[in-house]
Amino acid sequence: MIALDTSTNYLGFRSHEVLAQVAGDLLPKFYLSTKVGYFPGSRGAEHSLAPGRLHIAVEGAARSLGREPDLVLLHNPEHSLAQGTAQSRETLAAACAALDSATSRGLCRAWGIATWNPTVLPPLVDASVPIPSTLMVRAGLLVGGRTLHATESLMKAWGLSTGAMRGMSPFGGSTGAPVWARVDPRSFLRDDGRYSRAQAAFRIAYRLPDVSAVAVGTDEPAHLGELVDALAAVPDEQAVVTYRTLLRDRLRTQST
């Protein structure tokens, strides 16, 4: 299965139209996910969790794409939420209910949440918040202990398995970032001699946290091919466990 992930606000809010034009009648052959939550504003993009706006955005996505998305993700809900308040819990619950309703109406096949900083969300989750089918989070060696802990807390609260999890930004922005010249992620692989640093970083992103897919940019086809080849790499599970333990210990120290 080939999956495409986009968002209403990409390409200056033109991503759906451009994708429909470029892919044409091939688009139904892809698994397609998109995101809603950002809207055009007088000063650029503005974020909103208003149920009515979200519902209209899902309708607009299906219309612009020429087909219903397989998955619609609530985009960075933390941007409109405060830590642990009753009002924020009600706002999150209403936003999730709007996407749940859109799914029931056949505007998309499933809904979920994409969050860049999930630390705000765990205290807001209770029985009033509908359960998403998918959770997309940052993944990889550059994800901090707080983000990893929050992600695992959400997985537990919603009863989500690895199959419901998706990762993004496995390189923390770019494979050319200075950190990758100083840190060799191949030490986390059992067969480290066969792969590049970028391939190793991508493969380990599937384990930090445990996700079933990782979204990457599509600017360079050759780069995509290398990443696909990296899926055959075998992580060194002991190294991963040790790294997770170090992150937890550091987080515990910072909290005391």
Rank of each mutant, 00 (worst) to 15 (best):
R166W: 09
T151L: 04
D184L: 12
A114N: 10
T162N: 01
F188Y: 07
D192T: 14
S133P: 01
T134S: 09
F171R: 03
T119W: 08
S128D: 10
W158Q: 06
N117G: 11
R105S: 13
Q199Y: 07
P118S: 05
P122Q: 07
D191F: 11
I131W: 09
I204T: 07
M155L: 09
T115C: 13
T103Q: 13
R186V: 06
S187E: 14
A201R: 05
L135H: 00
T115E: 05
T151K: 01
L160M: 08
S104Y: 01
P185D: 03
V179N: 03
G163T: 05
A157V: 08
A127I: 13
S153V: 04
S161E: 11
R207W: 07
A127P: 08
M136I: 04
I204A: 01
V120L: 14
P123T: 07
M155R: 12
R207E: 12
I204L: 09
D191R: 13
P123E: 06
K156G: 05
S128T: 15
I204Y: 00
V143R: 00
T175M: 15
A200L: 09
L148S: 00
A177Q: 12
P170H: 03
H149T: 12
T115L: 08
L124F: 05
A201C: 08
M165N: 02
R182K: 13
S169H: 09
P209H: 02
P185L: 03
D100K: 11
S128K: 15
A213R: 08
R207K: 14
T119P: 05
A205I: 05
D210Q: 15
W116M: 10
P122K: 04
R138I: 04
R194E: 11
V179A: 10
A102M: 12
M165Q: 04
D100Q: 14
G173M: 08
A164M: 07
A200G: 09
R194S: 15
A213D: 11
S187L: 11
S212D: 11
S104G: 11
C108K: 05
R207L: 12
G172M: 14
M168C: 14
Y206C: 03
R194I: 03
A157Y: 06
D184K: 11
L148Q: 06
T119G: 06
L154T: 00
L160G: 02
A139W: 00
